[in-house]
Nucleic acid binder design. Structure first.
Length: 425
DNA sequence: TCTGGGGTCCTAGGACCC
DNA sequence: TCTGGGGTCCTAGGACCC
């Protein structure tokens, strides 16, 4: 039987801050998201105060002041550095490792790697880096994840390490776990499972595969098999090729003017292009988007996006910048309070494999034209009940007119006319 | 009134994760 | 007043091709 471990750093960002400020030990600590908007990491003490994951900072100010919670802006350079140290220790201990995220890794365990070995590894990571970790062991990735969760939730009993493969009653553990606690089962799938009478991880494990397949597709079936110890997810030592790179930020306060949006966008283009250069990649398509504040229900909402296929693959900041500015001008409308803007570089190709004469560009180019949306709604529907509620993209199909997608119906709408005033491709 | 079948490519949207 | 920023995979359906 193959055995895998999932090693997960506890409250990683908070733990990193503590390494460099030991006086924070035993005190409540939180780390904030990029914009200092949300709480994205909490120490155990902060969790005990009832501060939820992802909570907007402003909602927690009272608790923070009352209990003297230490608040940090995030410092990803620091966290990346600490992560590398932890991973390098893990890499030296086992034949293969998959770095799954900044604070997690799957380990392929060699023969004779026992729970005691795991405890020693845990102690070593703590001693060498100052970062506490939990370790879960199982015969599949899903079970290793579940074991890790059990170890973390019952730290006083488990000491931060739990091994499904040597425990006398694994089903007993699964029966105490809700399906929503499993890796890959979120709010919606948990609800779907409840509808089938499946509430615990054990009930999921024992469910009818055909029924699961029908209601949850291959993802559900895969999870069911993994619960039964049949591996469906391989250890991936090499990170897969990147599909796209995004750079976006929210504004602290709403922005209305084009100039300010351009400035922000320039920043995003610089970051994204730098990133793909570092990876040795070229972008062949780019998308620019704008967002109004979705939390302000009463404000007029406008969330356009526009994508193009680039004339030639590039990672040059200047080239991308010129394109981005042009795209922004196409979607910008005055009179809205914008909250966020960003770009996405996609259809990435490796720089050293790129040969212009062999390069096959993506065929369809996506456009955004608000006027087309308006026009379709005007021509096709009752203006009070528009066919397209929030379509942000459409495609010009050769000879077939415009194809738009309606959010409400999740379907394409194809018009039989091509020409529209002021339509820009 | 009947009106192929198989395949690829593309996109949006849903769901999930850290 | 303030509400993150990245990613992934799967599915469904249309255009287009043979």
């Amino acid at each position: 039987m193959t055995r895998l471990a999932l090693v997960d750093c506890n409250n990683f960002f908070c733990s990193c801050e503590r390494v460099f400020n030991p006086a924070l030990m035993g005190k409540p600590v939180v780390v904030l998201s990029n914009n200092d908007g949300c709480i994205i990491s909490r120490s155990d003490e902060a969790k005990a105060l009832g501060i939820p994951m992802g909570a907007p900072l402003h909602e927690q100010q009272a608790v923070i002041r009352k209990h003297g919670v230490h608040v940090f802006s995030s410092n990803y350079t620091l966290y990346g550095d600490m992560s590398a140290r932890v991973m390098s220790i893990l890499r030296d201990e086992v034949p293969a490792i998959e770095v799954y995220s900044i604070d997690e890794a799957f380990l392929q365990l060699p023969e004779g790697f026992t729970e005691e070995t795991a405890r020693a590894l845990r102690a070593k990571v703590l001693q060498w880096t100052g970062i506490p970790v939990c370790i879960g062991i199982g015969s599949t990735k899903l079970l290793a994840k579940a074991a890790n969760r059990h170890a973390k939730k019952n730290k006083t009993v488990t000491g931060g390490v739990f091994d499904f493969t040597s425990y006398w009653d694994p089903d007993g553990i699964l029966s105490g776990m809700e399906t929503g606690d499993l890796w890959g089962v979120g709010k919606n799938l948990a609800q779907r499972l409840r509808g089938m009478g499946v509430k615990t991880a054990l009930e999921f494990k024992q469910a009818d595969p055909a029924a699961i397949r029908k209601s949850m597709g291959v993802i559900g079936e895969r999870m069911l098999r993994e619960l039964n110890g049949i591996p469906c997810m391989e250890l991936e030592e090499m990170p897969p090729d990147r599909k796209g790179v995004m750079a976006s930020r929210s504004f602290g306060s709403p922005v209305e003017g084009l100039e300010e949006l351009e400035e922000a966008l320039a920043n995003h283009v610089a970051r994204a292009s730098e990133k793909i250069r570092r990876y040795g990649l070229l972008a062949t398509s780019m998308e620019v988007f704008l967002r109004t504040n979705r939390f302000k229900k009463d404000d007029p909402q406008y969330c356009p996006g526009i994508g193009i296929t680039l004339d030639r693959p590039t990672n040059s900041t200047a080239e991308l910048m010129a394109q981005a500015r042009d795209l922004l001008q196409q979607i910008y409308r005055p009179g809205y309070r914008y909250k966020k803007t960003g770009i996405q570089l996609a259809h990435l190709v490796a720089e050293d494999e790129y040969q212009p004469e062999l390069f096959d560009r993506p065929k369809a180019s996506v456009i955004h034209v608000d006027k087309i949306v308006d026009e379709i709604n005007r021509r096709m529907g009752d203006p009070k009940n528009p066919v397209i509620t929030r379509a942000s993209q459409g495609t010009l199909r050769s000879g077939k007119g415009w194809q738009m997608r309606s959010e409400r119906h999740s379907a394409h709408y194809t018009t039989d006319w091509k020409e529209l005033p002021e339509a820009r491709v």
